[in-house]
Simulated assay, not measured.
Amino acid sequence: MKILWVDDHELLCVALSEYLQTHASELSATPIDVTPVFTLARALEEVNKAPPPDLVFLDLNLDDENRGAATLEHFQAGNPSKVPVVVCTGLTPGNDQEVEILRVCMRDYAARGILLKGGAHKKMFIGLSRILGGELWIPEEVLLRFARSTQAPSASRNEHHLGLSPREWDVGRCIARGLSGKQIARELNVTEGHVRQVSCVIYDKLRVRNRVEAALRVNAELGGGSGPDKGPS
């Protein structure tokens, strides 16, 4: 697997690249080759080489500028092979504006996941493993903020929303809030087995693979399609 790691903090970029290669056997079933680059221009050069990388980890603030989602927009415009891009950022889920930037990256510019540079080492390791396994990964604290800052639509609009029945929609909204199967069962007064069954139906109807992807679909629908500010962080 060929990976491009893009970050203008050169020491951090090299260190993360070396870490990924050193722990490749723990993170991926296939060998990993990581190329660290420090500018957006160089990243665009690398992604246009043949063959292109299989995966890109991209910092949103490059070239000493706070570009925010515009960095990903620019990169995707020059990414003809549609190489999957994971946002690796110092943005924090405690800041409303920065949460909206992350939401825009996922919703509008097809980011395949989020890694927080300031997050816990163990969580980042788990996230890397899931991403290298082909999953979409978002840290729990970011997913919870996505759900918390989304406005719920009226009850009449919710019925059969996204093709889900009212009960499936109830479970879907709980998934979007980041609740566990046990918490959903307690809140809806059903069994955990029932929650698992309904969750599988939801994944199938939404054509998603896991809870994170289902949560993103439901949160996007709850947001009503309104576009947040795409300005720099």
Rank of each mutant, 00 (worst) to 15 (best):
L4A: 00
D7Y: 00
H9F: 09
E10P: 00
S17I: 00
L20D: 01
Q21T: 10
Q21D: 02
S28P: 09
S28V: 06
P31I: 00
I32S: 04
P36E: 03
T39E: 03
L40G: 07
A43G: 04
L44C: 12
V47Y: 02
K49E: 13
A50M: 05
P51I: 09
P52E: 00
D54H: 05
L58R: 01
L60N: 06
E65A: 04
G68L: 04
F75K: 03
G78T: 01
P80K: 06
S81G: 03
K82Y: 13
V83E: 02
V85Y: 03
Q97A: 14
C105G: 11
M106C: 14
M106Y: 09
R107N: 12
R107T: 15
A111H: 10
R112P: 00
R112S: 13
G113T: 11
L116S: 06
K117G: 08
K117T: 04
G119L: 06
A120Y: 10
K123D: 15
M124Y: 09
L128V: 12
R130P: 14
G134F: 07
E135K: 07
L136R: 06
I138P: 10
I138A: 04
F146P: 04
A147M: 09
A147I: 08
R148C: 07
R148A: 13
S149K: 08
A155Y: 10
E159Y: 05
L164Y: 05
P166Q: 09
G172P: 10
I175E: 11
I175H: 07
G181K: 07
G181N: 15
I184E: 08
L188H: 11
V190N: 03
E192Q: 15
H194M: 11
R196I: 05
V198F: 03
C200H: 13
D204Y: 11
K205C: 02
K205R: 14
L206T: 09
R211C: 03
A215C: 10
L216Y: 10
L216N: 04
R217A: 13
E221W: 03
L222V: 02
L222G: 06
S226E: 13
S226N: 08
K230T: 12
P232C: 12
S233E: 12
